[in-house]
Design a protein around this nucleic acid. Structure first.
Lengths: 209, 209, 209, 209
DNA sequence: AATGAATGAGACTTCATTCAT
DNA sequence: AATGAATGAAGTCTCATTCAT
């Protein structure tokens, strides 16, 4: 028999990420994915039921890893909530840092997959952000985070902001570096953008509106 | 006044927003758009060159309006940068508030269009955020905003965060209200999430990294 | 608009019968059916959901007609059961006589459709033969038909026999004429094949087995 | 003795009959046949040139056996034509009785194979029915069978009728027993369905038409 | 001989766009 | 301008057959 030389499944996933990133999921052709993977078109179907399941697998792999690592961070006793949140930011950025094309695919197709409700990765995705939410809640309890923080708004704002930054970086990693993002985001989250002296007053005014 | 034609074009755009929001651009059928618009399939092509140009027109209309209004805010002498930024946030949220389906379309298709580089609205889009950037820069100059702020990171983080919040709101406006978003975002931007007392120390530590 | 010139649906059905007869349902290509019908391949799908539904429509049309006519015969008071049965045989043969290709399709695909259980024509098909069964039963009651007749066996034997004859005729109408079939079947049904004098004895012997 | 090879070939044929019966020839997959046969997909091609040749072999085996046995019956001096015909009917039914799935395959695919003209079994198939025809002719000569019998019509009617009965039995052997078929067919052939007293008159009338 | 992964031709079907009326 | 039937290009997926091991 012809044995599997190399890991075809892995090769298909790599190729799919490349092609999805280049054309977007809908305009990506199975024949091109197969070509990039170095196999015949039909062979892709030995490893994946159909085109959609390739996309799903990409997300499953990503969120499977990410959730595991985020859970590790959330479980660490040696870090306070602030440090845990920073570690989570680093984690997310590190994952994307290694693969700009993957970042593009994730960012571009996430919304549609989320809305479709399909994809076995969705529970892990939700749980990942639940973990972050827990950290924030714990931070509030410990008096480290702003007690008036709207956790829901923060969650979505934070996720969307990070995602868009990664997207920009994936498009042009020259003009926007990952470490720049890393520092900037941490600073934004912690301080906001207003200088300390001014902030209290402004905050009050804003709250009164 | 070309009332009839104007109305049809408007009807097609409205219908397209509805159908794009429901199925996504790729899975939206011209025949369904025409049906919703109350015209024959072929008639849509009297008003738009093709399917893609309908999408482009939607974006052009949105960013045309938005840019004009943002420019107005940027031009106001009676507001300081902090107030201008708040006004811009309100503006963005107000636009989306009136049309959740439009919000869905914008959020879901923006990335792809941006990456494709096509679309005459892109310059307006860029300029819109340049305006916001100017306000922030001015705020820094006036000593109102954090001088260490990474404007680029802030720009993308802020846009992405807002977008994702709107997206969530468009999906389920019950569990996440627009005013909640409005307050939450302003608070986040201004304060970050760390309580004042704690922040300085943490901020220092973080900055030293 | 481009109006329907001629009856495209009818043309497709005619073409499908021709192509199904030539290659069999499975090896018939939609592109060839469309070509024979004088339309573009995609146009066939304006009239039929898919390939299978074309086949179903052919059967529906046939059995719809046939059932209606058989019901008319069954309702006639001026004919005794023997004459009704003969009229039914004539009916079946007349339908096929006009269209050998239709006969081929019916004969070749009937079994598979029947087994699949799909096809809205199946109830009519069953009812058609119920009608014939009623005639036979009435014949027995009136003492015209052999009271020992196994109606179920007769029903399937008769149908299968007629079908196969039609099939042979469809393949080669030269060497086996429809009128020949007509007479032969009627004679077979009425007399069997054994000469009268001999029959009683043989029949007895057979019955005793 | 090539036991291993012989067994595999046999296993493939058995498996093919099972799978052909379940899905029909066209929808039967070589991989499923191989799986049922307990071999690898590719191994099937060591024993059969392709899928079609498996079907052909099934028919060759059947008609080879059948023809040999029918020839034996035809050669028996101790039976008169009536008895020979009955024996032939028993023979056909006995073959099918042992294997409903084989019956299904034969009944469903026979027409197509016959029409295609391919298959080395076709001569044997023809000869088998020539044998039956000879018996009938001999019966006529001896004055046992109806001299006006249209042999050709009888041949196809008889074959088709028997085939359809077997098909029904293969689908549902509960509601239609083989012995019921056996008796019913013999009775039909010999007597027809009209009662003796009535028949002469009706027959005359019919013949005059 | 046996394997079963790999191949790739080919068909169905969809739908943006065209065009005769 | 309006229609909507007609077009036909193109992509996904299947599966009989091959072939390297």
């Amino acid at each position: 028999m012809r044995t599997r030389e190399g890991n075809k499944e892995e090769a298909i996933l790599r190729a799919a990420i490349e092609v999805f990133a280049k054309h977007g999921y809908h305009d990506a052709k199975m024949s091109e994915i197969a070509e990039v993977a170095g196999i015949a078109t039909g062979s892709a179907y030995l490893y994946f039921r159909n085109k959609e399941s390739i996309l799903h697998r990409i997300f499953e792999n990503l969120w499977g890893n990410l959730h595991r690592q985020l859970a590790d961070v959330a479980a660490r006793d040696d870090l306070d909530p602030v440090e845990q949140l920073e570690a989570m930011i680093d984690l997310l950025l590190d994952v994307f840092a290694g693969n700009p094309q993957l970042s593009s695919v994730i960012v571009n197709e996430m919304n549609r997959l989320e809305s479709s409700g399909k994809g076995s990765f969705l529970p892990l995705y939700e749980k990942s952000f639940d973990l972050a939410e827990q950290v924030v809640k714990e931070g509030i309890t410990q008096g480290l985070f702003n007690p008036n923080l709207d956790i829901k708004v923060f969650r979505y704002f934070f996720l969307g902001g990070l995602r868009h930054l990664v997207h920009q970086w994936a498009k042009d990693s020259q003009s926007l570096g990952l470490n720049q993002i890393r520092q900037g985001v941490k600073s934004l989250i912690k301080r906001g953008i207003i200088v300390p002296e001014t902030r209290m007053g402004l905050g009050d005014r804003s709250d009164k509106k």
